[in-house]
Design a protein around this nucleic acid. Structure first.
Lengths: 171, 171
DNA sequence: TAGTATTTTCAGAACTTATTGAAACAATAG
DNA sequence: CTATTGTTTCAATAAGTTCTGAAAATACTA
């Protein structure tokens, strides 16, 4: 691989890691993901460890997390005992997996908690303003939930690209 | 204020803080924001400190950050010397401010970095696959940038609610 | 079965980020 | 001007998170 390409891939990996840490995602997890996206072939744990200078334990834990997110899968290469990893390469599928997980892990619990707030606040006059604002916020979060749901289902029904086309046309 | 309402507001504040920390936002900043959203009246720094059990410095820094995000503003109450704070109460405006800031701070720099990756990778045959995937990812990030731009501009043109209506109709 | 290769786990270390508290600063009133 | 009230800043430190490395577990081979 040329030095230029190596440098470009290194920049890619570090950009992805930097971005992820602004969005509440472990930087190393994102760097591994980026490395696998940038790599044509599947990589072994040892290659990942060497390229990113991380320990075996760290690599193992973050690969597990990436598999839990559905972004990376294990593959066997030939008759080798060792396991290799490769990323989902289609960016839309990637996006939809992320949407599905974040919806499930982070949006749905908030909807539940806000509904509990409303229940807890009761019916009294003194809580009217609070209830109104909580309801508005709940609506907003439900909208986000709805949109993420659409993105998550995108593998099947491809509604999102159509909506985006429309949105662009409305500019 | 009734105990029920107090409990409901406390749950609201802690839910918002919890959610924020999953999205790369300082938990205390989110708790202050939630407290101001939940409160009918503007609050003084001392009230915020007391309610959330945080130090003056912490409160001051996070209020400053909230003002930088355009989510909270300073208000004067009567002839008092002390300053009070209140949040933007309209959830759509709130949403659009957040979209604007995150676009500017976190999406635009990534677009620049990915374009730099493409430049750095050069034209050679060996980087063809990497360039193709980087371009796809860049497209995706640009789409997100575009959508956030639409949300950010929403105060003026209200395109988003129409798109959402449409999206719901497509279900 | 024992032996070897590989992966996972987890307690403690290293690192990162958030918070405190006190000093410096600003604004106002007497 | 000086005292008073309130705000901001920032070095020190606390809290939280991630990472390491070695031990335990697992999987395969012969």
């Amino acid at each position: 691989m040329s030095d230029r390409l190596k440098a470009a891939k290194a920049r890619f990996v570090s950009t992805w890691g930097e971005m992820a840490s602004h969005w509440g995602i472990n930087k190393t997890m994102a760097r591994i993901h980026a490395l696998l996206i940038a790599s044509d072939a599947a990589l072994s744990v040892d290659e990942i460890m060497a390229t990113l200078s991380i320990s075996r334990g760290n690599a193992s834990m973050n690969l597990r997390a990436l598999m839990d997110w559905g972004l990376v899968r294990r593959v066997s290469v030939g008759s080798e005992r060792r396991e290799y990893f490769q990323s989902e390469k289609d960016v839309w599928n990637m996006c939809c997996r992320i949407a599905r997980e974040r919806k499930k892990r982070e949006i749905e619990p908030v909807i539940g908690a806000l509904e509990e707030c409303l229940r807890e606040a009761g019916e009294g006059q003194d809580s009217a303003a609070f209830r109104r604002r909580t309801k508005e916020l709940l609506e907003l979060v439900k909208t986000l939930d709805f949109v993420l749901g659409k993105v998550a289902a995108q593998e099947k029904n491809a509604v999102m690209p159509r909506v985006l086309t429309l949105l662009k046309a409305m500019s």
